[in-house]
């Protein structure tokens, strides 16, 4: 990768200005995705390097219980944050399985969102936790619900001059269960064959809230709307678990590629979501 233009902004304002001045330059953060793609692409015209930009880093509580994570926050900080452990444990779980230690030290949440790969491991979690993406441009700041952010295969709602500033995870109901599972090609440095994240809440023996985010089963990270509909309002137990699994079969058409097969992906995501429903059904299991 030999770019000719390079700027390392010292603030979000400078970064936004650089972005506006050079809409054809790329944003670079930890470079763990860009470095891999570099040989396959024409060299970028220029680079806006936001790695370690202080205003883009850090994890903080905002708005009475929500958690705001700066786009340039590396996964290691997500893994070790007590706030994340308390509020969004499945984001920490996902972060712990991204690459291995070296990649977690360098790869960032903003980069995962920016690449918007169907196998980005944090993305189903952002769906399940109903996260919001904060985007900045010369026109100001806008907040996009994460579920509207991926628009297709590696395409997103990000405009050419926009910068990802932060991800915000709203406070979940204290009774909600968070569940997460990655099934990868191996135990580390592994791309997901499937992954699933869920937030499920039970009141008086019935599911009252269900959000399920899935990865590697469609051209982008998706919510399992059919399965969610089968769960919400239904009683806890096997029948609902089976209904959710059946709904997945109706709404998903995963593919066969070099990492897995369509039948395996569908069957496994069904098993995993089934297990989520059963786990959330059992009152004894710890949070």
């Amino acid at each position: 990768m030999t770019a000719t233009g390079y700027v390392r902004p010292a603030s979000i304002a400078e970064a936004v200005a650089a972005r506006a001045a050079h809409p054809d330059w790329i944003v670079l953060c930890g470079a763990t995705d860009l470095m891999v793609e570099a040989p396959l692409r024409p060299a970028p015209v220029g680079v806006v390097d936001v790695w370690a930009l202080a205003e883009l880093c850090g994890i903080a509580e905002v708005d009475g219980g929500a958690v705001r994570i700066g786009a340039a926050t590396p996964w290691r900080d997500v893994v070790t944050s007590p706030l994340i452990a308390a509020r969004a444990p499945i984001l920490a779980a996902a972060a712990r399985e991204i690459g291995a230690l070296q990649i977690q030290a360098r790869g960032t949440i903003g980069g995962n969102v920016g690449t918007s790969s169907p196998v980005g491991d944090s993305l189903p979690v952002l769906l399940a936790l109903d996260a919001t993406v904060e985007l900045a441009s010369p026109r100001g700041t806008r907040r996009v619900p994460y579920r509207d952010y991926p628009t297709g295969y590696r395409t997103t709602a990000l405009a050419a001059d926009e910068l990802i500033v932060a991800i915000t995870i709203p406070a979940a109901h204290p009774g909600a269960r968070q569940l997460w599972r990655k099934v990868g090609t191996r135990r580390a440095q592994s791309i997901s064959k499937i992954m699933a994240a869920a937030l499920l809440r039970v009141e008086a023996g019935r599911f009252v809230e269900a959000r399920i985010g899935l990865g590697a089963v469609a051209n982008r990270p998706i919510r399992a709307a059919g399965a969610e509909a089968a769960i919400v309002g239904a009683p806890v137990g096997e029948a609902t678990a089976d209904a959710a699994a059946a709904a997945l079969a109706a709404e998903l058409t995963p593919i066969t590629d070099v990492r897995s097969t369509a039948p395996y992906r569908l069957a496994t995501v069904q098993q995993v979501v089934r297990r989520f429903v059963l786990e959330a059904s059992s009152p004894s299991s710890p949070d």
Binding site: A100, T185, R186, R187, A188, Q189, I191, V258, R259
Partner: peptide, 11 residues
């Protein structure tokens, strides 16, 4: 190396 899988230490 991403797709032609061999075991890591974690495996």
């Amino acid at each position: 190396m991403t797709n032609c899988i061999v075991p890591t230490f974690a495996d």
